[in-house]
Structure formats: C-alpha cells, structure tokens
Design a protein around this nucleic acid. Structure first.
Lengths: 234, 234
DNA sequence: CGTTCGATTGATGTCAGTCAACCCGAGTGG
DNA sequence: CCACTCGGGTTGACTGACATCAATCGAACG
C-alpha cells in the first residue's frame, strides 16, 4: 500500500507537518528518510482500540475520525483529525495499546515513522520535543472544550457549539455567508456531540427556519447569521 | 505566602514531582533553586480562567479541582489534581491565558517555577521534555475517558464509572472493602460527571440499598461489591 | 443549643430519546 | 430511460429519565 500518488513526495510531506516545521533543510532530509507512506480509502480503519502500534502516524492529506464506544455501546467521536495532525502518540514513550479507533472519512494519505526512530529523533532534536508538547497542549485544550460542551444539557446549544467549531476549522468565507463542507454525516455529528441523529436534524431544521443557516444537501451548510449562533450560547 | 511548613523542604518537593524524577542529584539541586513555594487554604483559587500565568505550578501536597463553566452557567469539573500533578502547562511555550479555573479542595502546598526558567530547563534537559510529554499523554487519556463517559446518557452508569475511577485513584483496600475518601462533595461529583447533585444522591442511595456500597457520612464511601459496579457498565 | 450548609427524598414538568413512517437522492440493473 | 433498492435524512407522536422545585433532614460548627 505504498504511496504512489505522485503529489505527496517525501519533502512535501515533511514540510506539511507542524512538528517538523522548525527543522533545518538538512534535518528535514534526515527525517524524510525515516518516513513510510500509506493511503486509505473512505471507511477503512487505520487502527482499532487495543491494537499495538509500532509507528507514529501523521496525516498528510485527508480526514479521519477517532472514536470510542460508550458504556451503552454508542460511538463517541473524540477527534476529527486532518492534515498535519498526528496520532498514536500515547504509545510513543510508554508501551500502551491504542485507546481509540480511527476510521477514514475520505481518501487519506498518511506518513508513518517507526516508534524507535521517532524516539531517537525526539531525544536528538529537542526542537521536535517542544513542538510535540505544543501540539499536545493544543489537543488538551480541544478535549477540555469537548468535556465542557458535553456538560451542557441543552442539545440546541450543543449543536450551535459544534457549528461554531466547524466555522473555525472548516469555514470558508464567501459573499453568501460562511460555507462549511461538513466532515461528518448527521449521525457523525450526533456521535460527536453526544445526542441522536434525529435531534441534530431537528435542531438544524430549526436554525434553517430561523434563517440562521442554509442547508445544501447533506454535506454542506452555509452560515447566514453567525452572531445569532454566538448569542444563543450566551 | 512563602512556604514555612517545615515538611515541604525544597529537596523533597523536587523528588516528589514525576517530571523531575529521572534527573541526577546535581541536576535536582539545580532545579530546586528555581522553585518558589506557596500554599493555599480550602476554597481559595490558585488562578482563574483568562488569568495570565507566569509560572508552571506543581502540586506538592493537597488536592485541587480545575473547572470551566458550561454555556448554561453550570460548573464543569475537568480534573482533580493532586500530589505530583502540574498545571498551567498550556502557556509554557505559547503565550495564552489560563483556559480554566483552579480551586483548592483542601490545604494545598504548591511549587512554582517561572516560565522562562522552565523553558530553559526543558531545552537544556531533554529528559524533562520527555517526562512532560509522557504526563501530557496521560492527561489526554484521562480527558478522552471523560468525553467517553460524558457521552453515556444513562446517569446510573456515569455514577458507577466515577466510583470506579475513584477506586483507582483514591481506593484503600481494607477488610471491610475498598475505602474511598471522597475528594468532592455530592455537588462536586455531580459537576464532574455532568448531572445534578440530586441525581448523584439518588443513584448512591440505590447502590446502598443494593448493598454494593456503604455510605459513611458525606466524605467516605466503602465499596462492598466492585464486581457489581463493573458488571453494570457491561 | 441553634444556625448553617450540604445531603436526601418526594412531586412535578420537560426535553431529548425512541419508535415509526416517510422522503429523497444515488446507484443499479433491466 | 425508467423502476427499484438502499442508505441517510427528516418529521411526528409518544414516553421516560433526569432536571427542577420544594420540603425536610442531619451533621458540623461555633
């Protein structure tokens, strides 16, 4: 499954990844030699909970969801990862198993670096360690926000919050409004914010009636009135 | 507010903290010189959301809660930190503001290290950086579990899950059962798992009736039947 | 001994989950 | 080119669990 896409040459891949971004050209080349490419089709799993991982995985292009199952057996999405994000970091230093499942949402190209290689890298080049710390802090903040959001009972607020998050991460400003190409289906959104797909549907319809959003098919939403969303969460 | 407790001498403090645990004695002494001690009484805030922090904070002894407010204005507890944990790490490298509030749950002794000093340390001693990464990974896993748990609708399961977590972190095995000295009030537990205090009360009473736990006042619970708790979450 | 704060218990209301029907667009095959 | 199927999405009716409101209890403290 080696990458032969032509576009994702080694150099490009290394440059794209924030944790390597402040390396010198020579270092970059050194790192690039360690990388193995792979790609996955929509619906494939990169790994599953409890899998033993021997490599750090970096997303070069594409989108994936990381999820666990709740005690009730429902899928709970933890993250949506895209270009530049890395996964499998929890077992970089310790020898633990994967704590979540990862499924590909659209054709995705990844770079992998063997655990031992990465460990060496991180010790030899403290710059990388600092970048990793930075990135982990960012991820912690995302998770803290998720907990905060999951703590709000009112499901209308949760939907509005996820829309605001999507605006930040995927929003494209145009003259009609802010266009969001949804990374998730209705059910996916539901599993991300911890409600049912019916509830997501209903709340989106409501926002549509109020002319706060426009719904274009299942994969696109246009935000017409961001302020209204922000006001609704006080 | 310098520490004058006698017990928490500088050396001891440094030894207690996992992120410094694999330093040599000389390095330890070096680090120790950078530390400033403080202590707080129950109910005091170490810092509040949006505060600018100029130091990393390490808990030497005691317990604190870190929390945010949900969109509905309810307190959502993110972490309970105790001995050896550090806080304020998100603004170590970046210049961001505190993303949560921290309130002391019992008399707590902390060590602080100026941001610039810690930045230097972490660059000079990659060992520390690795420990920090390890600790951040652990915290990420905790948060991922929190999200997973907040995703379960059934509040009985949530209460059982938090009891199992407390067994891991605070459980003392005795011949009567597993004794838990609760770090939080009923309301605190409620704010941690995202339900109301009444619901916590009711679910605990239920477990008491089923002779799965024993309730000793407000601050102690004895687990009589851990298996029953584990079974209940499937 | 009285006050206070947290915990418990009970009664009631509400919102989101559940169940079910239906819709719609994409893809398939005749 | 149309008929059919299929999966995801929407909508409606109903229900149940948890929040809310309220009263009472009880332990801790001065």
């Amino acid at each position: 499954m080696a990458c032969n896409c032509g576009k994702c040459g080694h150099e490009i891949c290394t440059y794209r990844v924030p944790i390597f971004s402040n390396l010198s050209s020579e270092e970059m080349i050194e790192v690039t030699k360690l990388i193995v490419h792979k790609n996955y089709e929509k619906g494939e799993n990169i790994f599953l909970e409890q899998n033993e991982l021997d490599s750090l995985i970096i997303i070069n292009k594409g989108k994936v969801k990381a999820y666990k199952y709740t005690a009730e057996g429902k899928e709970q999405i933890l993250y949506i990862f895209s270009q530049g994000d890395f996964l499998g970091e929890n077992n970089l230093l310790k020898n633990t198993k994967a704590s979540y499942n990862v499924e590909v949402l659209e054709k995705t190209y990844i770079c992998t670096i063997k655990k031992e290689d990465f460990q060496k890298l991180i010790i030899e080049k403290p710059k990388i360690a600092l970048k990793v710390i930075e990135e982990l802090s960012r991820r912690i903040e995302r998770l803290e926000n998720s907990v905060q959001n999951m703590g709000t009972k009112n499901s209308e607020i949760r939907v509005n919050l996820v829309l605001l998050e999507f605006i930040e991460r995927y929003g494209i400003h145009s003259n009609e409004g802010i266009v969001i190409n949804l990374p998730l289906s209705r059910e996916g959104i539901a599993n991300y914010i911890g409600v049912t797909r019916e509830t997501v549907s209903r709340k989106l319809s409501l926002l549509y009636d109020e002319e706060i959003i426009d719904i274009i098919g299942n994969k696109k939403i246009i935000i017409l009135n961001k302020e209204a969303l922000e006001d609704s969460i006080k």
